[in-house]
Nucleic acid binder design. Sequence first.
DNA 1: TAATATCCTACAAAATTAGTAGGGATTTAT
DNA 2: ATAAATCCCTACTAATTTTGTAGGATATTA
Lengths: 136, 136
Amino acid sequence: MLSKKTQYAFRALAHLALEYGKGPVKISSISIEQRIPLKFLENILVELKNAGMLESKKGKGGGYVLKTSPKKIDLATVIRIINGPIALLPCVSLNFYEKCKDCDERTCGMRKMMLIARDATLKVLEKKTLEDIIKE
Amino acid sequence: MLSKKTQYAFRALAHLALEYGKGPVKISSISIEQRIPLKFLENILVELKNAGMLESKKGKGGGYVLKTSPKKIDLATVIRIINGPIALLPCVSLNFYEKCKDCDERTCGMRKMMLIARDATLKVLEKKTLEDIIKE
DNA sequence: TAATATCCTACAAAATTAGTAGGGATTTAT
DNA sequence: ATAAATCCCTACTAATTTTGTAGGATATTA
């Protein structure tokens, strides 16, 4: 399951997607309109910014904007930044890979199945974007 | 990601699948061979039993057996028993559904995307079984 | 220089996960 | 009947992760 933090991230990003092209949006207004705790949201937006998904501007008139079009921001990328791995096991994760102790990867049946599951999930999450979320 | 407990569960079930038809297997021998903490494994096996996946026998010569053929035990069922929901959001879970507060389910774009992702994942996890895990 | 806003570090509370302890209940063998 | 073997139940503890909060530093604008 996605953490609450990740759900907040998606709400904030959807908000920014709707304002895309209209200039910076303040954290505080996202916080209020999306009902997300202000300071928690700050952390989230900084993380997204550090990951290269957002740009920020300080001072009056400042705020956050999406760095690229909502069409180009896919859901898998967002999840990886805030939530972590998408795969069900570390040993089948593309971006957070960790070898498992006691199994031989070439023959491990569990791993094979989890690879298939991962691919099926990724095929969706890498194709769908913020655009898909906001379009009614 | 699957919890460590769930990974233990799969290892224990794969073990039982390999012994399927050969009589009960003791917790202690699963614990040793699969390197799973004994008391923790006890909890896991009782849960699987209470969920109807295993049968147990007490006393000498006792232990656990799969209640049905490894072919009939799919991965989604195991995950739901030990790990919980497979969906990425409570509002798109079939077995652990919870309504989300601030969204209209008919129009929520996030929900639509997560439904598609869930279906893709489930299609794999409901089709693959313990048999698939143990067959080399 | 004052106001506005993001950014940084650190902490704290709550929830979940992982594992342990100790003994009770049931079955089998002697 | 009794002892041994084995699962089963309740409760606790420890570790980790999640969900925040606090307070101020830094940058920008007017």
